[in-house]
C-alpha cells in the first residue's frame, strides 16, 4: 500500500513537472507573489522546455561518456596486466573527489573557452569518479567462492569478466551512474555561469534581477528531475540486485 502511495506521489510530481514545462504560463499567478515591482513571474527569454531538454542532453551525454571510460578503466586496473595501476588510480579517485565542481568548471574554461564544452568536460570528469569507484568496488569485492567456481568450471578470463564479474558488479555500477547523474544535474546549473544552455540560466537570471520566482522555478525543476531520475535508478538497482541475489547497492 505504501509502495503504491509513494508511486502516486512520484507520478504526480512527474505530471506537475511536465505541465509546468509545457505550459509555464498556467502557473504565473502562483509565482507572482514572489516577484517585486511587476517583474515577470515566468522566465520567457528562452523556453523552459528547451532549456530542460538541453540540460538533460548535456547530463546524459556526459554520463554516457563517463560510464564508458570509468567502467573501462576499472576493468583495466583489475586485470592482471593493469594491476600496477590500481593503487595510483585509487588515490587519483580520492584526490579527484576533493575537487569542487565549481573549480573543475572554472579550470576547464581556460582550455576550452566558454559555452557547452567546458561544462560537458567538467560533467564528464566529475562523473567519472563515482562510477569508477563503484565499479572498482564491485569488481574487487566479488565473493571468493564464486570467483573460484568460475575459474574451476573452466571459464577463460574474458568469459569470467562478461559472464560473472560484470553481471555481479552491475548493481554497484548502476549505483555509481545514479550518483554521477544526480551530481551532474546540479553541476550543470553552474554551467550557465560559463554560458552553457542549462536551467541554471533561469536561476542566474533570477539572482541578477533579484527575482525569486525565477530562482525557485529553475531550482525546483532541477530538483524534481533529480528526485525522479534518482528514484527510477534506485528502483532499477533493486531489481538488478535482487537478480544477483547479493544485495550489494551503493
Amino acid at each position: 500500500m505504501r509502495v503504491g502511495l509513494s508511486f502516486l506521489i512520484r507520478l504526480a510530481v512527474l505530471l506537475a513537472l511536465a505541465t509546468f514545462l509545457a505550459r509555464p504560463e498556467w502557473f504565473a499567478s502562483l509565482l507572482r507573489p514572489l516577484t517585486e515591482n511587476g517583474a515577470p513571474p515566468v522566465y520567457v527569454q528562452a523556453s523552459l522546455l528547451s532549456l530542460t531538454i538541453s540540460h538533460l542532453l548535456m547530463v546524459f551525454a556526459a554520463t554516457i561518456a563517463s560510464t564508458l571510460v570509468a567502467v573501462g578503466l576499472a576493468i583495466l586496473v583489475t586485470r592482471e596486466s593493469g594491476r600496477e595501476f590500481l593503487p595510483l588510480s585509487r588515490s587519483l579517485v580520492n584526490i579527484g573527489q576533493t575537487f569542487p565542481p565549481v573549480a573543475v568548471l572554472a579550470l576547464a574554461v581556460p582550455m576550452l573557452g566558454f559555452g557547452t564544452w567546458p561544462t560537458l568536460i567538467a560533467l564528464f570528469l566529475y562523473g567519472l569518479l563515482p562510477i569508477f569507484e563503484n565499479t572498482l568496488t564491485g569488481l574487487t569485492t566479488l565473493p571468493g567462492p564464486v570467483m573460484e567456481a568460475a575459474r574451476g568450471t573452466g571459464m577463460t578470463g574474458w568469459q569470467r569478466l562478461i559472464k560473472v564479474e560484470l553481471p555481479l558488479a552491475f548493481p554497484l555500477i548502476l549505483g555509481g551512474i545514479r550518483l554521477s547523474i544526480v551530481i551532474s544535474l546540479a553541476t550543470a546549473t553552474i554551467g550557465s555561469t560559463v554560458a552553457a544552455r542549462t536551467l541554471g540560466e533561469v536561476i542566474i537570471a533570477g539572482l541578477q534581477s533579484n527575482n525569486l520566482a525565477f530562482i525557485l522555478q529553475g531550482g525546483v525543476v532541477v530538483a524534481a528531475l533529480a528526485v525522479l531520475i534518482y528514484d527510477t535508478l534506485v528502483f532499477a538497482e533493486r531489481l538488478a540486485a535482487q537478480r544477483t541475489g547479493l544485495n550489494r547497492t551503493a
Binding site: 544535474l185 546540479a186 546549473t189 553552474i190 536551467l199 541554471g200 539572482l207 530562482i215 532541477v222 530538483a223
Partner: peptide, 17 residues
Amino acid sequence: NIVQTIPSIALFGILIG
C-alpha cells in the same frame, strides 16, 4: 535527501526570500 537535490545556486537564491 530532497534538500540535497536542489542545485546549490538555486538553494542559495531561494533562501534570500
